[in-house]
């Protein structure tokens, strides 16, 4: 019997591994932001290396999963939906890596008054993504429970929006000493970090629709 399900066993293992990798990537991103804000340059460089490796691994795994789905004709009716979902998961690690590189390349100046705000923003945004991963794992086992798990994602996404808006308001209303270029630069970095939670929200939407589709 185990011979019959060998391919499926491998695929299940690969999907779990893929989700783990992306989850790890999000955690590394969060730590990377903390390192940058606290000025720990060597740790930040280390995080960039780690996230690059994780992103490469995730890409390889995604391609392998794609091949297995089509080669062994597994879930032919739902494969395209699952592929889109895996793409959305991949976007999370892709964007995380890009943002860390942007921090590394552009070295945005973050005033001390805003460090805590940025830390809270990164935390809330990553939390939205991190709440998505257990929901993704549950989707494969108990689709009906997914919707309940996604409530947290929407909450964190809204929190991130609020925090981002506060930072922008602070930048343009309460910090006259900063140059406009610096303000705009920081505004863009706020937007970058906010994107993680937006992508998590997109994934959550997709998951809830898919879960509903599977349970019918």
């Amino acid at each position: 019997m185990s011979v019959l399900f060998k391919n499926v066993k491998q695929l299940v293992f690969d999907i779990d591994n893929y989700i783990d990798t992306v989850e790890q990537g999000t955690l590394v991103f969060k730590e990377g932001i903390v390192n940058y804000l606290k000025g720990e340059k060597s740790s930040f460089a280390e995080k960039i290396d780690t996230i690059t490796q994780l992103e490469t691994r995730a890409d390889k795994l995604q391609r392998k999963i794609d091949n297995q789905f089509y080669h062994h004709s597994i879930l032919p009716q739902n494969v395209s939906d699952i592929e889109i979902m895996l793409d959305k998961i991949d976007e999370l690690i892709d964007i995380s890596k890009d943002i860390l590189y942007q921090f590394d390349d552009e070295l945005p100046f973050i005033p001390k008054e805003l460090v805590n705000d940025y830390l809270r923003l990164a935390d809330a945004s990553c939390e939205a993504a991190l709440t998505c991963f257990p929901a993704t794992r549950t989707f494969f086992r108990e689709p009906l429970k997914v919707r309940d798990m996604l409530v947290k994602v929407y909450f964190y996404e809204k929190e991130t929006d609020k925090l981002a808006r506060n930072i922008k308001r602070k930048l343009f209303h309460e910090m006259p000493d900063l140059r406009l270029s610096e303000k705009i630069h920081l505004r863009y970095f706020t937007l970058h970090i906010e994107t993680i939670s937006d992508k998590a929200e997109n994934l959550a939407d997709m998951l809830s629709i898919l879960a509903l589709k599977m349970s019918i």
Partner: peptide, 17 residues
């Protein structure tokens, strides 16, 4: 289906078989 928490892919294989 409701009682057992079978992985979606394993469920697919069982259905296929």
């Amino acid at each position: 289906n409701q009682k057992t928490k079978i992985h979606l892919l394993y469920r697919h294989s069982y259905i296929k078989f």
